[in-house]
Amino acid sequence: MEKVVTFLLDGEVIQGQEGQSIMQAADEAGKYIPRLCAHKDLTPHGSCRICTVLVNGRPQSACTQPIADGILVESETPKVNQLRTDIIDMLFVEGNHFCMFCEKSGSCELQALAYRFGITAPKYPYQFPQRDVDASHPDIFLDRNRCVLCGRCVRASKEVDGKNVFQFVGRGVEKRIAVNSEQGLKGTDAEVMDKAISVCPVGAILKKRVGYAVPVGRRLYDHQPIGTASEEETTE
């Protein structure tokens, strides 16, 4: 039998199993920690830092940090939420996020996080970077303008689909998602039902010919913030 670990999350006593991450233990206790690159079916990556919490006063990513007896975890505090807001601001200005015509709008996790934190405008200057679109595949779009480099597609393709279609290339501001064919997506064995296609939190990887199917007002985050209890039931 696994050892029970007890810790404090925002002053509340939480019990988890040894080996769990802070995020896993919090999820089981019904406490939502905001996240972007983390996905319940994939190995945690710890890259987006939206799930940053203070563990005994030090910033750690809740998706990768294991729980330990007696740790003090701060999540829903003004200080931590300000850090998260700043990261979301940066993600918006570093890409080209035109929500007004994006097919993902209303069901986009980046947008939903911004709504949750009540962001009306980012505080950093817009970069308007030049990014490529790959529309070569008959059933899938890859729009790097909207990519937030969460790496969900990289992990899903490798871990779930067993294909290794996506990978990161470049470093720093040059970092981007690449596919394992010089002909673009059409030259890969990516298929529309792959896990890698459905896990994209933003509109960077989209299925063709199904856009705007859900009317405004009935999309995932139109009325309920991301992280509310009823969300799990409505997610595909």
Binding site: M100, T120, Y126
Partner: peptide, 17 residues
């Protein structure tokens, strides 16, 4: 600032790239 164009440039800003 009212609306996405005032806030982030909006559709006209598609020429920024």
């Amino acid at each position: 600032s009212v609306g996405d164009c005032a806030i982030m440039g909006g559709i006209p800003a598609m020429r920024n790239m």
